[in-house]
Design a protein around this nucleic acid. Structure first.
Lengths: 124, 124
DNA sequence: ACATGGATTCGATATTTGTCGAATCCGAAG
DNA sequence: CTTCGGATTCGACAAATATCGAATCCATGT
């Protein structure tokens, strides 16, 4: 098994127990913890932009060396934000040579989108 | 114009300038602020459960008096969390007699869901 | 007018978080 | 082996946040 080049806590995505829209069923307290962690990770303007740059990157991945200069922040701060996204299960990191590349984890993104789904306004 | 019974900051929803999936286009820095505020509001287990109880309430609304006893927290803390959801534009509050009722604002929920939309895995 | 009950606001406090600089780690190239 | 550049981790600190109790507000009923 390929050991992750960047230390990442386990966080089994399949363990996230919730998948119905919050507008349909009340989210269970236990699921709320994991899911809120993901929303919290997106709840910062810098991280939301990072997530967007990663998710929209051509080829599905982007180098940290391309992320860092996009902001007027120290590279340590960017690294910290990337760690938050990683620990929330929203992105994956892989080191190749001297560079680290990030990719989005679409499973969790889809899950969050499903949670926020709203029924279309009833047909007239 | 009906004055809001509960003090709410303006927060023009139509001013939120972003609506394409973050996996398609990079979210503009200016939009990131407003959108991150909404995600941050959902980024707390209590608030996520509150939001879910409100959005899934039969009739589309629920009394604070039904929200508060669902948690082992003081009513002032619940009130604080509801304010955060209000200021993020996720819910609306209306006072009727002695009670205050909350409803979800589906427009913003839909917008967030759109942001998180991911393309289906390409057909084989 | 006064008392009552539901909800919010105010003030205080412990915890979390965003940011940075210094130190460290990890591959690659001399 | 040593050095170099990219990235993360460590340690520190200011700012934001979650929580509570007390005080206030607001509508109702006596």
């Amino acid at each position: 098994m390929s050991k992750p080049v960047v230390s990442s806590p386990p966080l089994d995505l399949d363990a996230v127990p919730c998948c119905t829209p919050i507008a349909r069923d009340r989210v269970p307290a236990q699921a709320a913890g994991v899911l809120a962690q993901a929303f919290k990770a997106l709840g910062d303007p810098i991280r939301l932009q990072l997530m967007s740059m990663i998710a929209s990157a051509p080829g599905g991945e982007i180098c940290v060396c391309d992320l860092t200069p996009a902001f007027t922040l120290s590279s340590t701060t960017i690294s910290h934000h990337l760690k938050v996204l990683r620990e929330a299960g929203l992105v994956d990191a892989e080191r190749r040579a001297s560079w680290v590349y990030y990719r989005a984890r679409p499973a969790l993104m889809r899950q969050l989108a499903t949670l926020l789904a709203v029924e279309e306004p009833a047909a007239i």
